[in-house]
Design a protein around this nucleic acid. Structure first.
Length: 285
DNA sequence: CGTTACCTGAAA
DNA sequence: TTTCAGGTAACG
């Protein structure tokens, strides 16, 4: 569910609320603990209770709750996870699975319909974040870097953009949106993109993510921000889940296919088909 | 590389 | 009843 803009919205909502608070309790639903944290509740409490929160960061789609002993609670919401701030006696969230009790009576509530989300307490957060590719909104993420990631790959460009080791934070919504904005077909072999297409794609990735953040994320289904409110971005998407509806740019009906195992939406006219390599131009071996 | 599994529910 | 779902790890 949540991609970079959704996770970043949650981070911005919660960071000022949690920073400086002390964790005074941890509760996890019994049927969820194994999948969520993979450790006994006593172990989880031992590492969290009594710690002061130093800040809330983000890397790719991970939330990083920094603790005063140098450890980090690394959280991933996967498909249906939610993390919301609640004062004291607010009623239980739908599919609430866990909560962090904070001093002063507030709570961070974790709910997750499908139970795919994960928590792990690590001494060194780089053990997790080092596996991720660059942050697409970081100034260090360059056209040249993107070109390198795509170069020589036969995989569909969409598959490469979804690979968190190449670039961190894009998911199914924003990949489809970025490819539309760049005028690139999702199934084009990554290595076949022209220099101009790579440049457009780089700009499009950034602009769709920035717009997603400005609109506080896309609430197609489960996503809510750190206060439990829906985002707005789903009302502004150009292609995602718009199959059968006219392209806003040219009127052609938006198509839906499967690429990289994911539902994929694109405009057959605005997004050029992958350039066909002529059989006689292919090098043997 | 693509496919499957994880889990639960909504929509077709 | 079947298919699909915003993610990713583990398969073959």
């Amino acid at each position: 569910m949540p991609e970079l803009p959704e996770v970043e919205t949650i981070r911005r909502d919660l960071a000022p609320l949690v920073t400086g608070r002390r964790i005074v309790g941890v509760e996890v639903d019994r049927g969820t603990l194994d999948r969520l944290a993979g450790v006994p509740i006593e172990a989880l409490r031992g590492t969290l209770v009594g710690r002061r929160v130093e800040g809330l960061g983000r890397r790719g789609k991970y939330l990083l709750l920094a603790l005063d002993d140098g450890c980090t609670l690394v959280m991933h919401l996967r498909m249906t996870g939610r993390l919301v701030w609640r004062e004291g006696k607010a009623s239980e969230e739908p599919y609430e699975r866990a909560k962090l009790l904070l001093d002063g009576g507030a709570e961070l509530r974790w709910s997750d319909l499908r139970k795919f989300g994960t928590w792990q307490v690590v001494e060194d957060a780089t053990a997790v974040t080092d596996k991720l590719g660059p942050e697409p909104l970081d100034p260090l993420f360059s056209v040249a870097g993107l070109r390198t990631s795509l170069a020589g790959r036969a995989a569909p460009v969409k598959a490469v953009l979804l690979d968190q080791r190449r670039v961190a934070g894009l998911g199914n919504i924003y990949v489809d949106e970025a490819l539309y904005e760049a005028g690139v077909r999702p199934d084009a072999p990554a290595g076949d993109l022209s220099a101009a297409s790579v440049r457009r794609l780089h700009g499009a990735m950034r602009s769709v993510l920035e717009r997603g953040i400005e609109n506080r994320g896309a609430s197609f289904r489960d996503y809510v921000d750190g206060q439990g409110n829906q985002g707005q971005q789903h009302m502004f998407v150009q292609v995602f889940r718009r199959q059968g509806k006219p392209c806003y740019r040219c009127g052609t009906l938006i198509a839906r296919t499967v690429v990289a195992g994911r539902g994929t939406h694109f405009c057959p006219r605005c997004q050029r088909p992958p350039r066909k390599r002529r059989a006689d131009a292919r090098r043997p071996g």
